[in-house]
């Protein structure tokens, strides 16, 4: 399940072993046709421009887990920020420049006795402003169904085996809130500044399917 690129499974390998995607020589699907028609109409009517659409796609693609990692590292190093983040995640990350638009943020701190993990069983709600585009597995039926049903087995497949005294808490992102897991600060990082700490914060540690890297 942890593999990110399921969409490649259906593509082939070239004789030299290089993965490739077949040329798209077939016709457009119904929805592809509709997307093109709506986009061209919006441009024709002057509602949008092609440049604005391209700029928005660029802005969406530029978001990455580095945003969330900066939030987590500051949570580890700045007690005032940590308290504000737990009290009002939405406003606190907005002040760092990460605006979630109409969505609201709840930050979920892991402790010695609690491990949080995020899923959206109904669709694929994900804190894109903090973590970028979701990995393919996050949207899969298997992850969505199994994370609520057997979270410890899912975690084990991601390499996270938790003792029974650590409570697993699953967060089903069913409505207007978005979530970020705040993993525990790795041992051996005393005196590290936020920028250095951020290099230890992985995307999966903020979804809850992983733990941060250890201090090398």
């Amino acid at each position: 399940m942890p593999h990110d690129h399921h969409d490649h499974d259906h593509d082939g390998l070239s004789p030299s072993g290089h993965p490739y995607r077949p040329d798209q020589d077939t016709g457009l699907s119904y929805w592809q046709t509709m997307e093109i028609a709506v986009r061209e109409l919006l441009i024709d009517k002057g509602v949008l421009t092609a440049a604005r659409i391209a700029a928005q796609i660029e802005a969406m693609d530029a978001r990455s887990p580095a945003n969330g990692a900066a939030v987590v590292a500051r949570y580890w190093t700045d007690p005032g920020f940590a308290a504000a983040l737990l009290a009002d995640g939405t406003t606190t990350v907005k002040e760092m420049g990460f605006d979630l638009g109409p969505m609201h943020l709840i930050a979920l701190p892991n402790t010695d006795t609690l491990h949080n993990i995020i899923v959206c069983t109904l669709c694929s709600c994900y804190p894109r402003n903090l973590l970028g585009l979701p990995p393919d597995w996050y949207k899969s039926r298997a992850y969505r169904a199994r994370t609520v049903r057997e979270p410890r087995r899912v975690l084990a497949e991601f390499g996270v085996t938790l003792p029974e005294h650590v409570q697993v808490r699953v967060h089903d992102s069913t409505a207007d809130m978005r979530y970020i897991v705040l993993p525990q600060r790795p041992a051996g990082t005393d005196g590290w500044d936020a920028a250095r700490l951020a290099t230890l914060v992985t995307r999966d540690s903020m979804i809850g399917t992983g733990l941060p890297k250890t201090a090398a």
């Binding site: 057997e150 029974e164 697993v168 967060h171 069913t174 409505a175 809130m177």
Partner: peptide
């Protein structure tokens, strides 16, 4: 109003690990 509701995993699934929990937003 939207409520975050916490459930005991063992109330949802008979074979859940005791003490595990699940939270969801319910209108």
């Amino acid at each position: 109003p939207l409520y975050r509701v916490r459930f005991a995993a063992s109330d949802l699934w008979p074979d859940a690990t005791p003490g595990d929990t699940l939270e969801a937003e319910i209108y």
